[in-house]
Design a binder for these strands. Structure first.
Length: 354
DNA sequence: AAGGCGGGGTC
DNA sequence: GACCCAGCCTT
């Protein structure tokens, strides 16, 4: 028989092996917990930490964030992905600066960018009040411990996992308990090669007892991703600056800056003219990269062309930028990861030649 | 090359 | 509610 309840064993394990040194735990304010929880959506702790540090240095409190320009918020978010998170964080900050910080879970869940699990995490972490979370780590722990063997994509499966999470939670030490269950999923009950011999709840774990650790949780097989081919334009003016275009406020890379994108190379000339730019030479294909999105794979070719100085680049969505500034890690322009990689590599290649 | 991962918007 | 969208890191 199991020695003590699930929660008791988990809390005991946490006191010895859990993470007590995460940046958002000291000090553990609602603002810092909220920012960290939004960053942690879809993103692992080790990735989040440097972003969190930089973000909090620039925006130490709600009001500095609420008063910021969206461009600056996104610049600090650049590279984390799912940029709607950054835009929603900014929106929510402005709402809270206006209406005050919510005092209960429903109030938090009503803010943009905060769903049931994130709201629960904030309540438990920041206020040390009982609340049940169900993030990816907890889903995996619950599917294994309770033996939920239907696909995660089914709503009934999600209901079962919520129920399992509720049954195992306790009202004692809510902040520690939620951190503990997430830590367990991240460090011991990993997707592959879980370390059951180190798990405090292994003795009554369904998956371990039936040797199903590798088979739970169950997922439906994904279809092959469709592919999209696009051409990215590296248009350089006589000053050596490159043209960037701000993307529409929502959708892929929403609000971020990118090289202008066209469907095929024969649209380059026409597109340049749209900005009032004359090509000073034939465009050349200089590199390519691939990037996988959730629903398609992007195959990108980068085409370079020098342009004569523009008569009037007055459109607010476009700007010429010194690419050396883009290779700077302290960049203040929000670039998606593949493009910041492109500029960094180009800069590194040039530096090697010198 | 493929797996994993919360929430918003739309109908 | 059902369905679609989104972008990194790890394996």
């Amino acid at each position: 028989m199991a020695s003590g309840s699930f929660a008791t064993r988990l809390l005991q394990w946490f006191s010895e092996h859990g993470r007590h040194d995460l940046p958002w735990q000291h000090p553990r304010t609602p603002y810092r917990v909220w920012v960290s929880e939004v960053m942690l959506q879809q993103t692992q702790v080790s990735t989040v930490i440097p972003y969190f540090q930089r973000f909090l240095q620039r925006f130490p409190d709600l009001y500095s964030l609420a008063g910021a320009e969206q461009d600056e918020v996104l610049a600090l978010w650049a590279g984390l992905g799912y940029y709607a998170r950054g835009r929603n964080l900014h929106k929510a900050a402005q709402l809270m600066a206006q209406n005050g910080i919510p005092e209960d879970q429903a109030g938090w869940a009503a803010l943009p960018g905060i769903g049931p699990s994130t709201a629960a995490a904030i309540i438990a972490q920041a206020y040390n009040q009982p609340a049940v979370i169900l993030d990816g780590n907890v889903k995996r722990v619950m599917a294994r411990h309770a033996g939920v063997d239907t696909p995660l994509e089914h709503k009934s499966t999600l209901d079962q996992l919520w129920a399992a999470a509720r049954e195992r939670a306790c009202d004692q030490h809510p902040a520690d308990y939620t951190q503990a269950i997430m830590d367990l999923g991240a460090s011991v009950c990993r997707r592959s090669q879980p370390e059951c011999e180190r798990c405090p709840v292994a003795e009554d774990c369904y998956a371990r007892l039936h040797h199903l650790q590798q088979d739970l949780p169950v997922r439906v097989r994904k279809k092959a991703l469709p592919e999209r081919n696009r051409v990215f334009l590296w248009l350089e003016n006589p000053q050596g600056e490159v043209l960037l275009e701000q993307r529409p406020p929502s959708g892929i890379w929403g609000g971020l800056y990118s090289l202008p994108v066209v469907m095929t190379a024969d649209e380059i000339e026409c597109s340049a003219q749209k900005w009032g730019l004359q090509l000073a030479a034939q465009p050349q294909r200089i590199s390519h990269f691939g990037h996988r999105f959730t629903h398609f794979k992007l195959n990108a070719e980068v085409h370079y062309a020098p342009v004569s100085s523009s008569s009037a680049v007055s459109e607010s969505q476009i700007r010429f930028v010194d690419p050396h500034d883009l290779a700077d890690p302290e960049i203040s322009i929000a670039l998606p990861k593949p493009l910041s990689r492109l500029f960094q590599q180009t800069y590194a290649d040039k530096a090697k030649l010198l």
